[in-house]
Simulated assay, not measured.
Amino acid sequence: MEKKLHNFFQSGILEKYILDETSASENLQVEHYIETYPEVESEYLRLQDNLEILAKASAIEAPHFILDNIKKEAGKETAPVMALVSAHRKTPWYSIAASIIALVFAGSTLMMYQQNRKLLQENQVVVDEIFDLRSDIAENNSILDDLMRRFMRLNNPETEKYVLRGNERAKDLKTVAYINAVDKTSMIDVVSLPQLPGNQTYQIWAEMQDRMVNLGILDPSEREFQSLPYIEDALGLSITIEPKGNNAIASDNAVAEISLKSKNN
């Protein structure tokens, strides 16, 4: 049974099931494993939690509805038609008839012109909305592709998770670093950073044997996973409060520190 579960986990079908990329028959297989084996159910719940973490990092604003814009365009009032004042003189009946026919024709022509113009405007609105939707779809697909790559990286067995919590100087500080020594990748999830004065910033450092290496600035308003430079042989990570700007030398004002596992050294 252990070999069977090992083959199941190695196939990657559980990750595809979480991302809704499996067929109907594969869905039945995965659901059977989840109901039958506690190990599979536990891994399934863990993957769901990780996917929820990543989903919160990418909030996508919904596009405007085409129907609302069409109704807005359709509700605009057309320009009023000015009334014609008849002249106070006798006119032959055939001239009156010709004038009436001309007025009716002119009125019909104006109405058709206004209707065609209105249709053209509505069609342009629809074309613009379709163009915007295509752009949104392409952007959303790109975001989802990036989300899936981060999700797979997050669940890589070689990825180590490190939680950095603030000390007395920043009690509400919490970040989570993910480091993969095999792929040489590193990223950080900014969970919460207390607000600083405008002339100060948070910076993260890699602790080496003889120096501190600057890995970049942490933005309190940034709620997405941020990539960090991977540093070989790093002994630990440290977050400090520094004067605004990208400082090359770390101060003693550390607010969070953690040691890295020896396999990353």
Results as ranks from 00 to 15, higher is better:
35 E>H: 12
44 Y>M: 09
153 R>E: 13
245 G>T: 02
244 K>T: 05
62 A>W: 11
128 D>T: 06
190 V>T: 15
138 A>N: 11
211 R>F: 12
209 Q>V: 08
37 Y>E: 04
70 I>Q: 00
12 G>K: 02
210 D>Q: 07
202 Y>V: 09
202 Y>K: 15
9 F>W: 00
252 D>C: 02
119 L>W: 10
121 Q>Y: 04
87 A>K: 07
134 R>Q: 15
21 E>V: 05
162 Y>C: 06
224 E>Y: 01
22 T>M: 00
158 E>H: 12
189 D>V: 05
231 I>K: 00
168 E>H: 05
235 L>S: 15
240 T>P: 00
119 L>M: 15
241 I>D: 03
194 P>T: 01
262 S>G: 06
13 I>P: 01
54 L>S: 07
162 Y>N: 07
106 A>T: 11
261 K>R: 12
82 M>V: 13
139 E>W: 09
225 F>C: 06
28 L>P: 06
32 H>P: 00
176 V>Y: 02
55 A>Q: 15
122 E>F: 00
40 V>L: 05
82 M>D: 12
158 E>F: 11
56 K>W: 07
189 D>K: 14
29 Q>K: 12
51 L>T: 02
178 Y>A: 01
115 Q>A: 13
29 Q>H: 09
93 W>E: 09
42 S>G: 04
148 M>R: 15
127 V>R: 12
181 A>G: 11
88 H>L: 12
56 K>L: 04
260 L>K: 03
221 S>C: 02
68 D>F: 04
188 I>L: 15
51 L>P: 08
183 D>S: 14
130 I>T: 14
46 R>N: 13
190 V>P: 03
52 E>W: 10
26 E>W: 04
98 A>P: 00
229 P>G: 02
44 Y>N: 10
207 E>S: 07
40 V>N: 02
218 L>P: 03
145 D>V: 03
112 M>A: 10
81 V>E: 06
264 N>P: 00
120 L>Q: 15
255 V>T: 01
166 G>K: 03
112 M>W: 05
184 K>P: 04
186 S>A: 13
77 E>V: 09
50 N>H: 12
138 A>Y: 02
213 V>K: 07
59 A>G: 09
260 L>E: 06
258 I>E: 08
143 I>H: 02
57 A>C: 14
208 M>Q: 11
159 T>F: 06
66 I>Q: 03
187 M>Y: 14
9 F>E: 00
103 L>I: 13
43 E>H: 10
57 A>W: 07
193 L>N: 03
175 T>N: 09
135 S>Q: 15
126 V>N: 01
159 T>C: 03
173 L>K: 00
138 A>D: 11
262 S>F: 06
